[in-house]
Design a protein around this nucleic acid. Structure first.
Length: 140
DNA sequence: AGAATGACCTCTC
DNA sequence: CGAGAGGCCATTC
């Protein structure tokens, strides 16, 4: 529980933004932080999810908030503090139909070009990105 | 009370 | 292009 109302407001903003994530899509903490109006505080977003209420009676809880769809900007699921947590998140993502890959270090990775949900173009992705999106189809 | 950590990101060398 | 340091705020010891 947040000690300050403003703090709780930040939490609610984050949870609400996470709920905005469509099914089978994933986004990064930075994006959520930006949506809530605090692009300089991506860590707090993680803290929000970390302290996500497990109470089914709470307005926001790990059952109503798809926290699993939230990963880091590298497209990799943070190992959190326990490998089980990250793996559990990967399992949930796969259950959503998200393709979860694995890095050489065994880190779970998600392809943003596949399930990347970005209502607003990120400066890192391409500030002047034109309409030519989703064109990364290699075609093999 | 203060100090340390953390589900992070961005800039700079 | 790769590695490093800084910064932010809440939770916890």
């Amino acid at each position: 529980m947040a000690r300050s109302d403003e703090a709780s407001a930040f939490f609610f903003a984050v949870y609400s933004a996470v709920q905005e994530i469509p099914h089978g899509k994933v986004t990064s903490y930075a994006h959520i932080a930006r949506l809530v109006g605090t692009p300089q505080r991506p860590r707090q977003v993680g803290v929000c999810l970390k302290h996500l209420p497990t109470d089914a009676g709470a307005r926001y809880n790990n059952t109503n908030v798809p926290w699993q769809r939230v990963i880091n900007a590298k497209g990799v699921i943070s190992p959190r503090s326990q490998p089980s947590g990250a793996r559990n998140q990967a399992e949930a993502l796969e259950a959503e139909g998200v393709t979860v890959g694995r890095s050489a270090m065994g880190e779970l990775t998600v392809d943003f070009a596949e399930h990347g949900w970005f209502p607003r173009s990120l400066p890192s992705e391409g500030s002047e990105a034109e309409d030519s999106e989703e064109d990364s189809e290699d075609g093999a």
